[in-house]
Amino acid sequence: MVPTTIRWTEAGVPRSARWPAESAAPPPRRVVPADDRMRADTAYRLACEGTALLWRGDFPGARRLLRAMDRRVARKPPRPGDGPADAFHQYRRARGHRARVLGRLLVLLEDGYRLDLRRAPDVRRACVEAYGPPSGPTLVPLTGLLGAIGAHQWRVKGVEVPALGARVHPHYGVFSPVRGEYVDLVAHAPLPPGARRGGTAFDLGTGTGVLAAVLARRGVGRVVATDISPRALACARENVRRLGLAGRIDVEGPGLFPGGRADLVVCNPPWLPARPTSALELGVYDPGGAMLRDFLAGLAAHLRPGGEGWLVLSDLAERLGLRTRGELLSGIEAAGLRVAGRIDTRPRHPRAGDTADPLHAARSAEVTSLWRLAGR
Rank of each mutant, 00 (worst) to 15 (best):
M1F: 09
M1T: 04
V2D: 09
T5D: 03
T5I: 13
I6A: 05
R7A: 13
W8F: 13
T9F: 00
P14T: 07
S16N: 06
R18T: 09
A24R: 01
A24H: 02
V32E: 12
R39H: 09
R39K: 14
D41V: 12
T42Y: 02
A43M: 03
A43E: 04
Y44N: 05
R45F: 01
R56T: 08
G57V: 04
R63Y: 04
R64T: 15
L65Q: 06
L65I: 06
R67G: 12
R67F: 00
D70L: 11
V73M: 07
P78G: 02
P78Y: 03
G81M: 06
D82H: 13
D86S: 10
A87N: 07
Q90K: 15
R95Q: 14
G96R: 15
G96F: 07
R98L: 12
A99H: 15
A99W: 08
V101Q: 04
V101A: 13
G103R: 03
L106C: 07
L108F: 09
L109H: 10
L109R: 13
E110V: 07
Y113E: 05
R114F: 08
D122Y: 07
R124K: 14
R125P: 05
R125W: 01
A126I: 08
V128I: 15
S135Q: 12
G136T: 08
P141T: 05
L142T: 12
A148R: 01
H152R: 15
Q153W: 05
P162V: 12
H171Y: 11
Y172K: 00
V178T: 14
R179Y: 08
R179L: 09
G180L: 14
E181W: 12
D184M: 06
L185P: 07
L185Y: 05
A187W: 11
A187L: 08
H188Y: 03
A189P: 02
R197C: 07
R197S: 14
G199V: 03
T200W: 03
A201I: 03
G205Y: 11
T208R: 00
T208S: 13
A213M: 13
V224K: 15
V224N: 05
I228S: 10
R231S: 08
N239L: 01
R242A: 08
L243G: 07
G244M: 04
A246N: 06
I249F: 02
P254H: 05
G255Q: 10
F257M: 08
P258D: 14
R261G: 02
P269R: 00
W271N: 05
L272I: 15
P273V: 10
A274E: 09
S278F: 01
E281F: 10
G283W: 02
Y285A: 06
G289I: 13
A290N: 02
A290I: 12
A297E: 15
A301G: 13
H302I: 05
R304Q: 13
L311E: 09
S314F: 06
S314R: 04
L316M: 12
E318R: 01
L322S: 05
R325V: 02
R325Q: 10
S330M: 04
S330H: 06
L337T: 06
A340M: 00
G341W: 15
P347M: 11
P350S: 11
A352P: 14
D354E: 15
T355H: 12
P358G: 03
L359F: 08
A362M: 08
A362Y: 09
A362D: 14
S364L: 04
T368P: 00
R372I: 10
A374H: 01
